[in-house]
Every structure is written in structure tokens, then in C-alpha cells.
Amino acid sequence: MKSNILIIIPAFNEEQAIIHTVNQLKTFDDYDYIVINDGSTDQTAHILQQHHIPHISLPVNLGIGGAVQTGYRYAQRNGYDYAIQLDADGQHNPDDLYHLVSEMKSRNVDMLIGSRFFEKTNYKGSLSRRFGILYFNYLLRLIARVNITDPTSGYRIVNRRVIEWFAQDYPVDYPEVEVIAKLARKGYTVEETKVEMNARQGGESSITALKSIYYMFKVTFFALIRSYL
């Protein structure tokens, strides 16, 4: 451990993108990073071994929630003050890391989310994706009284307090929106800052049409129940 900031990179079957993502991070000497290999069935584990990339390999697939939580538990055990989530598929731009960290420190919030829509950026998503994002924005305003323009963004940094929480309790699937609702309702501060996002380097989005309907219902239901009760 050379830093007090840990970058958590969950990876499931990311053999095409993982090297590129990690290489980009190598220029950020002052942050630690760890790849959580979520029981990948392709060459991801092999690549991580071969290139001596710091990683934790889950023996079976836990899904995004379980994988990310492994990272938070690792951060908690090793005494990190901040943890950043970064997607392995190259969508998140490492150039924004410094910006996220410095904003996090100066604003002194509990969670800072990298947003594609906070200011105008080059991001162009599909219509259905934009609709989903708008819907969750409205949902969060309604139940948690926060205005998050990009609630599904996985690019986020949290402080020690939230690391402790996530190490204990983190949703199994589609965790992004739900945790914002929970944190905000419990009085934690959640804010946003602008980031650029790239098109995917490889792999496929985990969200298909049918799944996105389940996603909206599931998140709405759980955000409501778990935030109020």
C-alpha cells in the first residue's frame, strides 16, 4: 500500500479490455488499484496473473454487487481513506481520476459521482438509456431529495465512512441507484462532478432490453422499501 486511495476495478470476462484499462492507470503512480476478477470464464484471470496486475480472483461469479463489495471490503481491511470504482471495459476515463479525487477532498462529501450530464459532454447514449437515467433522476429527487443527473454512473469515489458501510452492506445487483438513495436518506452527502466517458473497449453491456425493465422495477422497489423502512 503506497497510497490512501484505492481504485476498485470489477471485471467479468474482460480479456479484451482489461490490459488497456490497467495500462492507462499505470501512469497514475500515486493511487493503488485492484482488479476484482468476478469468476471470469475467459482468459481474464490468466492475463491478470501473467502481467502481475494486483487482483483478487473470486472462485465463483458473484455478480457486480458482490464483486464491487469485495473491493470495498479489501479497502476497509487495508485502511484506505478513499475508494474509487472504475469499470474495466474502458468506459471510464482515467484522466478524470485526479479531478475526482481533488473535488472529493475539497468538497468533503461522502460520495462523489462522475457524471456525463453534469455539464455538457460528448456522451451520446441510446434513447432508452437516457429515459432510464431520467427516470432514476426523478426517483432519487422524490425519495432522497438529491438531484443526481447521472445516477447509473459507476464511476464514483467514496470516503472511509462509506467504505465501512459498503463493506457490510451492498446490494447484490444493480447497486448504483439504490446506494445513492440509501446514503442520501441516511444523511450522507452525495454530489456530482463532470467526467467524460468513452465508448466501450470490448465486452458487452450487462443490460439488455428485458433486463432494463427488471432493473427499473427492482431499483424502484428496493430504493423505496430499503430507504424508508
Binding site: 483478487i56 473470486l58 458473484l62 447484490v172
Partner: peptide, 13 residues
């Protein structure tokens, strides 16, 4: 089981 899997992974590392 989830906690166990995570623990196994930590030990493995």
C-alpha cells in the same frame, strides 16, 4: 456463501 467466497478470494491472494 457470498461472504465465504470473498474470504476465500482474500486468502488466495
Amino acid at each position: 456463501i457470498k461472504t465465504l467466497i470473498q474470504e476465500v478470494a482474500f486468502l488466495q491472494k
